[in-house]
Amino acid sequence: MDVLSDVLATTRTGRPVSGMFIRHAPWGRRYGRVESAGFHVVLQGSCHLLREGTEPLALGVGDVVFMPRGCEHELVDQPGTPITETAGPGEPREIPGPGPATSLLCGSYELAADRTHPLLAELPEVVHIPARLGTHPALRGAVDLLAAELAESRPGGDAAVPPLLDLLLLYILRARLAESAESAETGWAAAFADPPIAAALREVHADPSRQWTVESLGTVAGLSRAAFAKRFTATVGEAPLAYLTRWRMITAARLLREGDAPLSTVARHAGYGSEFAFGKAFKREYGTAPGRYRRDGLVLAGTA
């Protein structure tokens, strides 16, 4: 599995949700902070995104905004318009008014807070992908398909919408990485654009249980041990073996929360020869023993 797919598969949880909303000016809508990632796509008209301490962000048709940590924000037809509604369950799909209409595609994703990957952690509070002719056609296609499914109830819609939402998230992140790679010298956009570093990351994700060394990863990258360690650390932001341990713990946490494999199997998958060594490493990362972490997850699932 490639790195971005692996990151999404490991950090995504639950089912994504979405809906279409039409507001006629004047309108103002508040979105409180939530424990999930959210997005908006402007399908018709225009609006402004407001956040405390920042300048209003003007949004037009085709613009996409993604909030990876569910930050508090507001959408208004124009800066200065009073906030008259708060996003929440059961709200009407359309609210009439005297002014022009704005049509929005909105939704959210559950991302496991305890399995946050640095690729997602380094994203800003708001990722803005403006609509520009000829850019990100896959993202535009996913938006069109999703909007068509939500616009009217058709047979198979319940099966079509979740995978389309997953595709939308993937294409949002691809677009962000592609735009960032044009100027980034460090970070994950730069790592994906750097063939030796990208090759080493793919191998780590393909086989995290292998007893990797800096030298063996350098061989994969086609670099000497010292050159690889320096380049990886400067680009990714942490040393190769530190990232390897981080990824092993993230994948182990997922196996513990989402499966029933014995601890010995989880330990082997994470590259540890004994449950004891794995338990020490896991507790150092998560502050609790693997078995307790799994039991806590079962309790949370039972009360959800």
Results as ranks from 00 to 15, higher is better:
residue 151 A to I: 02
residue 8 L to P: 09
residue 127 V to P: 03
residue 226 A to R: 14
residue 235 T to S: 11
residue 7 V to A: 08
residue 127 V to R: 04
residue 166 D to T: 04
residue 153 S to A: 14
residue 72 E to M: 13
residue 169 L to H: 02
residue 303 T to D: 11
residue 139 L to T: 00
residue 282 F to A: 02
residue 129 I to A: 06
residue 264 S to Y: 09
residue 187 G to P: 07
residue 299 V to P: 01
residue 178 A to S: 15
residue 174 R to E: 14
residue 115 R to V: 00
residue 243 Y to L: 11
residue 94 E to Y: 01
residue 96 P to T: 10
residue 73 H to M: 07
residue 104 L to T: 12
residue 228 F to H: 03
residue 282 F to L: 08
residue 79 P to V: 03
residue 181 A to Q: 05
residue 164 L to M: 13
residue 190 A to R: 01
residue 231 R to E: 15
residue 195 P to F: 05
residue 143 V to T: 07
residue 33 R to W: 02
residue 14 G to D: 03
residue 189 A to Y: 08
residue 128 H to R: 07
residue 183 S to M: 11
residue 107 G to V: 10
residue 158 D to H: 01
residue 280 K to T: 13
residue 30 R to C: 06
residue 90 G to V: 07
residue 65 V to A: 08
residue 195 P to V: 00
residue 102 T to I: 12
residue 115 R to F: 01
residue 67 M to G: 02
residue 159 A to L: 12
residue 192 F to W: 04
residue 97 G to S: 14
residue 259 G to Q: 09
residue 198 A to Q: 10
residue 128 H to C: 03
residue 50 L to I: 04
residue 250 I to L: 15
residue 155 P to A: 04
residue 121 A to P: 14
residue 126 V to C: 11
residue 216 S to D: 00
residue 65 V to K: 05
residue 4 L to H: 02
residue 228 F to Y: 01
residue 4 L to E: 02
residue 247 W to H: 08
residue 237 G to C: 01
residue 153 S to V: 13
residue 217 L to Q: 04
residue 256 L to C: 05
residue 159 A to H: 09
residue 40 H to R: 10
residue 222 G to A: 05
residue 269 H to Y: 12
residue 59 L to V: 01
residue 293 Y to C: 11
residue 80 G to K: 10
residue 98 P to M: 05
residue 266 V to S: 07
residue 5 S to C: 11
residue 107 G to R: 03
residue 202 R to D: 14
residue 213 T to R: 12
residue 77 D to C: 15
residue 136 H to G: 08
residue 202 R to I: 02
residue 304 A to G: 06
residue 280 K to S: 11
residue 155 P to I: 03
residue 54 T to Y: 12
residue 74 E to K: 15
residue 265 T to S: 14
residue 278 F to K: 06
residue 301 A to R: 15
residue 234 A to C: 08
residue 219 T to N: 10
residue 201 L to I: 06
residue 61 V to C: 15
residue 103 S to K: 12
residue 285 E to W: 07
residue 19 G to K: 07
residue 1 M to G: 09
residue 56 P to L: 02
residue 21 F to Y: 11
residue 39 F to W: 04
residue 192 F to I: 00
residue 70 G to L: 08
residue 94 E to W: 00
residue 152 E to I: 08
residue 110 E to M: 15
residue 108 S to G: 10
residue 150 L to V: 03
residue 148 A to S: 12
residue 224 S to F: 11
residue 292 R to G: 04
residue 207 D to H: 12
residue 233 T to L: 10
residue 303 T to C: 05
residue 228 F to W: 03
residue 12 R to N: 01
residue 275 E to W: 01
residue 197 I to R: 11
residue 193 A to P: 08
residue 264 S to T: 13
residue 147 A to L: 03
residue 235 T to A: 05
residue 51 R to S: 10
residue 217 L to E: 06
residue 149 E to M: 08
residue 232 F to E: 14
residue 75 L to T: 13
residue 177 L to D: 03
residue 284 R to G: 01
residue 232 F to S: 13
residue 13 T to R: 15
residue 84 T to V: 15
residue 11 T to F: 04
residue 19 G to R: 13
residue 6 D to S: 13
residue 199 A to S: 14
residue 218 G to A: 07
residue 303 T to N: 09
residue 266 V to A: 05
residue 278 F to Q: 08
residue 36 S to D: 05
residue 125 E to Q: 15
